[in-house]
Amino acid sequence: MVQAEIKSLLKEDISILIKVPNSAKHYLCDCGEASLLTVKEVQSVSAIFISHTHIDHFSNFDGIFRHQIGSGEKIVICGPKNIHRQIEARLKSYTWNLIDENAIEYEIREIVSKEEINVYKIRPPHWNLELIETQHFLFEDEYVNVDFAILDHKTDSIAYLFREKDSVTFNENGLEFKKGKWISELKKAFENNDSEKEIEIEGTVYKASDLFHFLTRNKGYKLGVIMDHAVCEDNYEKIKTVFREADMVYIETFYKDEDQEFAKINYHSFASASGKIMKECEVKEAIPIHFSRRYVESDQLEIETAFYKAFQGN
């Protein structure tokens, strides 16, 4: 299953690395200061997901692309409205006279609405944006597809849900045939819902549906990252729609309960509010993240205590 690692220490700006087991592929959520993020990890990132471009979520973007330039890879960047212009401005602020046009390519996916994703391409040395297409989905590769919610933080703040692809396992119990390539053919038919597919085993042809009992579908793991958001019913309805019954969710919990007036003023969440919405979403595991830099370790402990009390319904 996909795994997340917080790469920022207390009082550092937030950045979360998501890894695919048995793969060199990583995804990065937000580009805040992250002293635990290694160069090797950055160079393995194939997609970056930006919640919003406040400085504490975007300040380390330059450091990220510093270690990606020269890879020759295409890297996807997803983010809120105007993300393409902000990335263009960052890239054009440097001198690139010694960089080849094949050094890297960024594909920027601007989230305009749930149904409208504008896709841009930008490459060195001139970094001129090119609108490629408008699509209705955000991101999908061989490992995950990514859903999202557009939350209010007095600006659009994108919350992301990584849905691992379902897997199919073969059950050998009671198997009366020799294993062979027919198993992969059967799995493909199962995944394509092709019950009429003919499968040949040891000279005999079977209908795929007659063999489906050898297979089990395993639901993919669902991992969520919810960054800055105001405590309001509209945000919570969107969160419930996307993140209900997720396996694990990391959620912004910027303030202690006693500082919830600051949360209201600054369109952030606070400890018990974040815990309560996770309980209402019936997520299996929830982790509070992204605390105000005013806090020390004892404050973090207080936040976590209030969060888990609300999450567990105590």
Rank of each mutant, 00 (worst) to 15 (best):
V225P: 11
E185V: 00
N192Y: 05
Y206C: 08
D194Q: 10
D147R: 04
N118M: 06
F214A: 09
Y221T: 14
N193Q: 13
I201L: 03
D147N: 05
L186G: 09
E196L: 06
N173E: 15
Y143H: 08
E130V: 06
K187M: 14
C232S: 12
N145T: 10
E105I: 03
K197G: 10
D194G: 08
K187T: 14
W127E: 13
L215W: 06
I99L: 05
I201W: 03
N102G: 03
K165T: 13
E101W: 01
G180Q: 14
A103D: 15
A189R: 13
K179A: 10
I132E: 09
D152K: 01
E172W: 02
E196Q: 10
W96M: 03
V205I: 11
N193A: 10
N173W: 06
T169V: 11
E116C: 03
E116R: 04
S113D: 12
H126P: 04
F137S: 05
N145L: 04
E196F: 02
G180N: 14
E191F: 03
N193F: 11
T134W: 00
H126M: 06
K121Q: 12
T155M: 05
F162S: 12
Y160C: 02
F137M: 05
R217N: 12
K219Q: 15
N97I: 04
A230G: 14
S184N: 14
D100P: 02
D228C: 04
I117M: 02
V231S: 08
H126F: 09
K92M: 08
D156V: 06
W127D: 14
E107A: 00
S113E: 12
